[in-house]
Nucleic acid binder design. Structure first.
Length: 573
DNA sequence: GCCGTTTTCGGCCCGACTGTTTTCAGTCG
């Protein structure tokens, strides 16, 4: 499926045309790129059927270009544009506040092609000499450039986990074909469900290591084999993710899994306990003198250390070892504890599926309810609802609730919080809703005090059930807004407004640390997906993982309640 | 470059915000 490649090339063409100051064409290319990005069907199929021009935003010229990409994997026009402006577009555009026009200007005036050159020019105060840019722009570039550079370093868990699952399944199947008993598990930060992943670590126990490393290195999506051996193999995938496969004896599988799962600090804490007991812990097992006393499973290693079993999400050396010793670990919210999703978008605004499609998908996940929270907004980009359309939507929901069994659709909306903390919606529009999510979607550059005041003002309107993605960060792309969490937590409790863990892999907001602080301050949270299409509902597991990393229990999460309890607990406008 | 019960030419999504400007261009969502 070449959809993403086609979309990427079209988007780059758009950016380069933008750089040259070409009008209107860039948006034509972007529109076509968006269509193809969200196309369920492989673009090759559309091409084969001769139906490219039927796609919205695709005319004869772009259709020809798509055909060229499908056939050859590249586009001459794109290559020619790149020759004219040979800059690291992706890297430079990753700097917040720098767009195509600025990239073009920087290249034309200073010959800047890369992030490093941009940083040097900024440090030498050359940026401010360009007409149209100034000292503020220079400062902004310097403060954003670190984030832009780090961008490539770590993958989102939402990207890495599905790939790792797929590879693990493939390798497990390989083990099975050999008919040998074997085990295989992902390890590393992926198993701890960290929000970003450096590389994918996989641990295996098999009688036939060569066969397994062959299977890894011969996978279709491998770009480069870094090393290949009996106990360790590493490859780089086409998407630049690195995969390390380690193979150990079965009687060491548990201790090796602990060792490769980490975190490093957690392992150090465990080794100290082993030493205190006159034992030695390493990846091969727990030893008394030279005799292995545990190692086959993680459970037996923890037990022999005198500890409760510690779930991977907690292994960060944040007090979990002491808690395990005192049998005081929390009973973490299970991955199947969620009863409903309280932030969902549909075709009514910027989502891809209908209310019924989303509700059916939620029902298939075992949910008892969902809240439809399309954007209530005046911004056309998200096709926001106004008061009339919200009423029309309510009628559709009433109809669906009569028709569907086993799932209850709650009426909701996601409302913008203006810079001054007022909601960009009237009380009259919201008054009949079951759930109001209020979120910050603009005016990000406020002081900590202003942003704190803004969120609290929104909570004090009495109209808000949930504050969506409270810091508005985007991982690797946008820093979180600064908030005084103590004040926000206090207001959350005082006004009965719940804070959200947004499960979108690029957000995970609140994050594990702040969610943990919230719960310890006595707040309850909602875990929502913010789904814009059916498949996004599956992101719930990342939100739950974040909650588990925050030491949260089921009772800390409002949407782990059945519908009747939830409707009592949640505040209506 | 796309598109059309304002249709084959002449528009094209729009509002907020920022930083650079004396009236606007670029970026973001």
């Amino acid at each position: 499926m070449k959809n993403l490649l086609v979309a990427k090339i079209l988007n780059e063409v758009a950016d380069m045309l933008d750089m040259q100051g070409v009008e209107f064409k860039p948006n034509a290319y972007r529109r076509a790129a968006r269509t193809i990005e969200s196309l369920a069907e492989p673009i090759e199929q559309v091409y084969a059927k001769g139906k490219l021009e039927e796609l919205p935003g695709v005319g004869s010229a772009i259709a020809k270009k798509i055909a060229e990409i499908v056939e050859t994997g590249s586009l001459k026009y794109h290559e020619e544009l790149k020759e004219k402006t040979p800059v690291d577009l992706e890297g430079l555009l990753a700097v917040e506040g720098v767009g195509p026009k600025t990239v073009g200007l920087l290249y034309k005036r200073l010959g800047i092609k890369s992030l490093d050159e941009l940083e040097r020019a900024a440090l030498q105060h050359k940026i401010r000499t360009i007409k149209g840019l100034g000292p503020k722009t220079e400062e902004n570039i310097l403060s954003s450039i670190e984030l832009a550079k780090r961008r490539k370093e770590r993958a989102l868990i939402g990207t890495a986990l599905p790939i790792a699952d797929e590879i693990c399944e493939l390798l497990r199947a390989e083990i099975r074909t050999k008919g040998t008993v074997g085990k295989l598990e992902p390890a590393g930060s992926l198993r701890r469900m960290k929000e970003t992943i450096g590389d994918i670590d996989i641990l295996a126990a098999t009688k036939d290591p060569i066969h397994l490393s062959d299977a890894l290195t011969q996978m279709a999506k491998v770009r480069k084999v870094l090393e290949k051996g009996e106990t360790k193999s590493s490859v780089i995938l086409e998407n630049n993710l690195q995969v390390d496969l380690r193979i150990v004896d079965e009687h060491s599988f548990g201790s090796a899994l602990m060792y490769f799962t980490g975190s490093k600090d957690h392992n150090i804490a465990l080794r100290k306990i082993a030493i205190a007991k006159g034992l030695k812990l390493n990846e091969y097992g727990l030893f008394k003198k030279d005799e292995q006393v545990a190692g086959r499973t993680e459970e037996e290693v923890y037990e022999k250390l005198g500890l409760e079993y510690i779930p991977p999400e907690l292994r960060e050396d944040r007090g979990e070892v002491a808690a395990a010793m005192n049998h005081a670990l929390p009973e973490l919210i299970p991955y199947d504890a969620i009863e409903g999703d309280l932030q969902i978008h549909t075709k009514w605004s910027d989502g891809r599926h209908t209310i019924e499609e989303m509700a059916q998908a939620a029902k298939a996940m075992g949910y008892g309810y969902v809240a439809i929270t399309d954007h209530y907004s005046t911004m056309p980009i998200v096709n926001g609802l106004n008061e009339q359309r919200l009423r029309d939507q309510a009628k559709e929901i009433d109809g669906l609730n009569e028709k569907l069994s086993g799932i209850r659709i709650l009426k909701g909306a996601e409302v913008d919080i203006a810079g001054d903390g007022r909601l960009k919606a009237d009380r009259s529009a919201l008054k009949d809703l079951d759930v109001v999510v209020a979120s910050v979607h603009g005016t990000f550059k406020q002081t900590k005090k202003e942003m704190t005041r803004r969120l609290i003002s929104a909570m004090e309107t009495g109209l808000v059930s949930i504050i969506g993605h409270p810091t508005s960060r985007k991982i690797n792309a946008k820093n979180p807004c600064e908030i005084d969490f103590d004040e926000v937590f206090e207001a959350s409790k005082r006004t009965g407004t719940y804070l959200e863990i947004n499960s979108s892999p690029a957000r995970l907001d609140l994050n594990d640390t702040n969610a943990g602080l919230a719960v310890r301050a006595g707040c309850k949270l909602a875990i929502n997906t913010d789904a814009h299409e059916r498949e996004d509902l599956q992101n719930m597991r990342f939100g739950i993982a974040t909650a588990r990393r925050a030491w949260m229990r089921k009772l800390d999460v409002i949407n782990s309640m059945p519908l009747t309890e939830l409707t009592r607990a949640i505040r209506k406008p």
